[in-house]
Amino acid sequence: MDFKLSKEHRALQVKAKEFTEQVLFPYEMECEENNGITPETHKYITQQVMDWGFNATNHSKEHGGQGMTLFEQALCSEQFGMSTGAIWDAIPQPSFPMKFGTQEQIEEYLIPSNQCKRRDAYAITEADAGSDPTQCQTTAVKCDGGYKINGEKWYVTVGNVADFLLVHTHIDGDPEKATVFFVEKDAPGVSVKRTPEFTHHFAFKHPEFTFTDVIVDESKILKGIGEGFNMTKDWFVEARLGIAARCVGGAERVLNVANDWAAERIQGGRPIREYQVIEHMIADMTMEIMAAKSLLYRVCWEISDPDMDRKLKHARASAIKLWCSEMVNHVTDKGVQILGGRGYMRENPVERLWRDQRVDRIWEGTSEIQRNVIGGQIKKRGVELYTGWDYEK
């Protein structure tokens, strides 16, 4: 077996690294000090995204994207994930399910989003519906003019800069009729309830939206009535792989900073890396990243196969998201410890990543939910699903 990256993949990796260091890193402290990036910075990065060719890596060239495989997307996201403050979110990946839209929807929403002229936000989570979207209470009821949407959505990431929302609803309150609607953010009845603050400083915000008798035309249904649950699950697959890749990238940056510091910091007349306790911490961090990166590359390469069974994709995505999100928390905590007081200073990227990465064990499915998914799959298919190499059941 040949596990080497191709010449093209190496070039893509280098390009994403250079983009991250040249375009994203310079704005990390702006994001930290202002709890977000300015509109001017956002506009600049957006133009750079287009100039470098990183717009809509997850959508086809036919629709104005870059047409990258999931493996190629992971190579890019790994590098983008080294930036703090989630500035990587200024590199939009329009929601995967939009590719299932009608030609009119593709022209109105997908193509402009792929060209960075519009921005979507996926509205799923609610006060009583987190990792399990079947508990969604947002309803859509047939009425004159289409459907009337009522409900509330929490943690709508990039909701402050998006101009339209993909709203996960239940037709007539029936989970069997889970349906996603395109909803313009300025439509009558759409309002921001509040914009909570979180532990990390994020490039964009996560507002809570309320929908009060919002009338949406039937033509705004994405794919069809009852298609919402499967589309949302497919969106979770892509989102979880992206999280896993960024976790690996963030961990690599922490390791590099901590390793350099351990070689430079003199205590007791010698570099602290010469103390075995520090050396072992660096060794553990390195091995955790090695294992996670191996899993990341393997799974993303496998899932890039369009013919792979959908349920198998979901199962593997849960495993990689769980492993990488927990790994990065171990690594960043050790990184803070190695840097000592400096590791607790917000001007240090290790400290910022320490805060940034905590949410990765929560959003797009908590670690506990991922374990439920993995455990359920083992009951149905056996441990070979995860421990075997060629699994095709």
Rank of each mutant, 00 (worst) to 15 (best):
Q105S: 08
V328N: 06
F80Q: 04
G101V: 04
M82H: 05
V156P: 08
S219E: 14
T138M: 08
C143Y: 00
A319M: 15
T46H: 12
R298Y: 06
E184I: 02
P94V: 07
T332W: 06
K220M: 12
D284I: 02
A140F: 01
Q377A: 10
A121W: 00
D174R: 10
A262S: 12
T210H: 06
A121H: 03
R346P: 00
E364V: 14
G159Y: 05
C247Q: 12
Q377S: 03
K311F: 10
L241G: 07
G269R: 05
A315T: 02
K4N: 08
D120Q: 07
R352M: 11
L339A: 03
G226M: 09
R352K: 12
V158C: 11
E30M: 07
S191D: 14
D2P: 09
Q370I: 00
L339C: 05
W52L: 06
G340A: 06
D163S: 08
G228K: 10
V328M: 09
F25W: 13
T157Q: 05
C143E: 13
E384M: 09
P112A: 03
P196M: 02
G242E: 03
L12H: 03
S367T: 15
P306R: 03
D213S: 12
A319E: 14
T199A: 13
S131C: 04
G65W: 02
K393G: 11
S294E: 15
I171S: 11
R346T: 11
K185M: 11
V161K: 08
D356C: 03
V383F: 02
V257D: 02
T210D: 10
Q105K: 02
F236T: 10
H280Q: 15
W52N: 06
I171A: 08
G226S: 09
G64L: 06
G341V: 04
K321H: 13
H63V: 15
D132G: 00
Y275Q: 10
W52A: 08
G151D: 09
E78R: 14
A319I: 08
D390Y: 07
L24S: 05
P39Q: 10
D309G: 01
D2N: 15
E33K: 13
T195N: 10
W154V: 09
Q135I: 00
Q103A: 13
G343P: 03
I362L: 14
G151F: 01
H330Q: 10
C300W: 00
H206F: 15
E197T: 14
D128N: 13
